[in-house]
Computed example of a mutant assay.
Amino acid sequence: MSTTTIKRLKEEEEEEEEELLRGLPDHLAQLCLSRVPPALLYSVCRPWRHLIYSASFPPFLSIYAILSSSSSSNNSSSSSCIGLFSFDPISATWVPLPPPPPNPPLRLLLLRHPSFISRHLPVQSVSLSGHLLLLAATTHHLLPALSHPLVFHPISNQWRLGPPIPTPRRWCAAGSVGGAVYMASGVGADYSAAVARRAERWELEKKGWEGEWEKVAGMRDGRFSREAVEAVGLRGKLCMVNVKGDAAKEGAVYDVSRDEWEEMPEGMLAGWKGPAAALDERVMYAVLEEEIGFGVLMVYDPDEGDEWGEVVRSEHLRGAGQIAAGGGRVCAVCSGGTAIVVVDVVAQPPRIWVLHPPPSKHVVSIHVLPRMSAHIATATHS
């Protein structure tokens, strides 16, 4: 046994014997320390640092990202080289997630194909009830890559397979609202008008792992199967537009309680000119890009009427491709996946800072979820 290993084991034994707070049982000390910001605990001592990553400590939020290698971004015929990472805001490190189930292997999820030189092939994912779900992707044969959702639970550091998807698909609308995940429209092995109108949900929060995908009211037409669509959960409804960017588009809204599709409010549709996400399913944010070189973060609050309001504008928000929201912050994938821009929308005025992925990596998409219970792999500093 090496000297370094012996020293590390000795330090771990000393930490196990050391009290969190002198004179207090650990369970009472944890109650006291849980009221202290994790960033302060992290900087004091190792026992406290270990405490904030334990299952007994209230989890803070982290950014979870699907990353691709630089080679797959620059070579249209290469394999995807997808990786899954979490950015820990306390230690400022990128931590790889544990490997997902081997079937299907992540290398089969394609981002580029010679037949679509100027187009990225999406890997569609959603966050729901503290879980990260991979729902749809494309293989190198241009077929749906996922027959089951790949589901990661950060608190337990475990992957599971969700129930089989009745019609595996790609280029669909995917989102969550009210504790359930939804897939609508899209393309299966071949285009089908029936699949392009079909919508299904899995009530993960209510029925758990015993639940199955169930059919809900079908869409009015198949116009949402042209590209990957982010369905945004807002006040018990699922909202989506069929085209990204500033192009003319159509909107659709699914009312969960009535199991009906309805027209999108005019103001919501008119201002939806970029990637969007909801914060706690109460308000919706979107980033639009102006010709003068600024990206503008907009907010849609149903309590304030059918209109969008400006939150902040910044050159850092240019070229936003996807956004996620949680914990009072909106995070945007910008600069072709080479940066993540974080906006604190609670602060007045809003604060902005920029994160970068690990070297030789590009960000495909992001989510905001509770931190993993322990660092299980070598961390990479941002």
Rank of each mutant, 00 (worst) to 15 (best):
C81F: 11
L369R: 00
L146N: 00
L317I: 10
L135D: 09
A339C: 11
H141D: 14
S77P: 07
P104K: 03
L40H: 11
V123L: 05
L132N: 12
A347L: 07
F60G: 06
A137P: 04
G179D: 11
I376S: 13
V287G: 11
C45T: 04
V283W: 01
L28S: 02
L67N: 07
H316G: 08
G267P: 05
Y53T: 05
M372A: 07
F152R: 05
G188A: 10
P265D: 14
R223T: 13
E266D: 13
I117W: 08
T378K: 15
F57L: 07
V216A: 06
A137I: 02
M183E: 15
H27Y: 13
P104Q: 02
V341E: 04
R201S: 11
A325H: 05
H140E: 15
Y53A: 03
A252R: 10
G178T: 13
V296G: 06
G319Q: 04
N75D: 14
R112M: 04
T167P: 13
S77R: 14
G178R: 04
L369T: 01
G245K: 05
A199E: 07
E310G: 11
V44H: 01
R35E: 13
A286W: 01
L134V: 02
E200C: 08
A278F: 07
E227H: 05
S2F: 06
P38N: 08
L110C: 14
F116K: 11
H113I: 03
A174K: 04
T4M: 12
G319L: 03
G83T: 12
V232D: 04
H50Y: 15
P58C: 04
K215Q: 14
I352P: 02
Q348R: 15
S335L: 13
G319D: 02
V345S: 09
G236N: 03
G274L: 00
D303S: 10
L111C: 11
E14M: 09
E200K: 03
T93L: 09
K207Q: 12
G321A: 12
A137E: 00
P59L: 06
V345W: 08
I352V: 15
K249Y: 12
V181F: 08
D246K: 12
V123A: 07
V363K: 00
L134Y: 01
I340A: 02
L121S: 02
D190P: 08
E205N: 09
A199S: 14
